[in-house]
Design a protein around this nucleic acid. Structure first.
Length: 270
DNA sequence: TTCCAGGCGTATC
DNA sequence: GATACGCATGGA
């Protein structure tokens, strides 16, 4: 990894190929990044804020503002999945025609390794909903709590008390998740160590968590890159391009292929 | 007005 | 196991 830390400005200069801010931060895998200027986003992991700016698109140069070297190495390096070679993955995917087009279309997508609770709760909110409204609900949640609320912070909430979110029927799913995670009936740490199928079943004990939400929570929150969330868009891709199933080249990294395909089909459908 | 959105619970067969 | 329908909300 190629980076320099400036103690004077408390920022990191990072050289990173295969990384586009719009394609990664505004593609519907995380909902709290705000585009604050051209080539600049402001966001957070839990309550740790960050401004990230692209200084040179062609050469892949980024500035991460307001972060110590310790935070960069301990938090953001993992969050932006900097240790994974996406160039190598894209070469692997290039043997499939549709994936090849998808990677060429948005080659700067990366998987964000998010907090497990934030990913799970965000995708509970996402069901039968559109991305602008998901962002609105999560924005009201964070505004109310001064940051993304922990499971414990939500302990006393009821579907009624969460009415300010305007989350509709999803409010009762959030409180069920909080209840089952607090009681230990469901455990994210347990899910972390279980095989993918059993982890999915563990998460699906929560009301409002079906196969798709569970797969998103696993892919973005537990970094199970073999999870392949099938939403309405990916179902369209499957019906149109892969009626006989996914190609061999995505085996084991289905979740990463899913992100390229999701972005591609949404873009060409507009 | 109707349709749709990073689905799921429930009823029914 | 598969299929049909309702669900809160808000933008197109």
């Amino acid at each position: 990894m190629d980076y320099e830390y400036s103690a004077k400005s408390n920022s990191i200069i990072l050289r990173q190929p295969d990384f586009d801010l719009d394609e990664t931060l505004d593609c519907g895998q995380a909902f709290r990044w705000v585009k604050t200027a051209e080539n600049e986003y402001s966001g957070a992991l839990l309550s740790r804020p960050l401004v990230i700016r692209c200084l040179d698109k062609a050469d892949g140069v980024f500035e991460l503002c307001g972060t110590t070297e310790e935070d960069f190495l301990g938090v953001w390096q993992e969050y932006f999945d900097l240790a994974t070679d996406y160039g190598e993955l894209k070469r692997r995917f290039s043997e499939d025609e549709t994936l090849s087009k998808a990677c060429a279309f948005a080659g700067g997508i990366r998987i964000l390794k998010q907090d497990a609770w934030e990913a799970l709760s965000s995708f509970i909110i996402s069901q039968n909903n559109n991305i602008p409204r998901i962002k609105g609900i999560i924005g009201r949640l964070c505004e109310h709590y001064g940051g993304y609320p922990s499971i414990e912070q939500l302990a006393d909430e009821t579907p009624e008390s969460l009415g300010f979110l305007r989350a509709g029927f999803r409010a009762k799913y959030l409180t069920d998740a909080v209840e089952k995670l607090r009681s230990g009936e469901v455990s994210l740490d347990r899910a972390r160590t279980l095989p993918t199928d059993e982890a999915r079943a563990e998460l699906m004990k929560i009301k409002g968590v079906g196969p798709k939400v569970a797969d998103c929570a696993m892919l973005f929150g537990l970094y199970r890159i073999d999870a392949f969330p099938k939403d309405v868009w990916v179902k369209r891709v499957m019906a149109q391009y892969y009626p006989d199933g996914l190609p061999e080249c995505v085996r084991g990294v289905e979740g990463i292929a899913q992100q390229y395909l999701f972005h591609y089909i949404r873009s060409i459908s507009k």
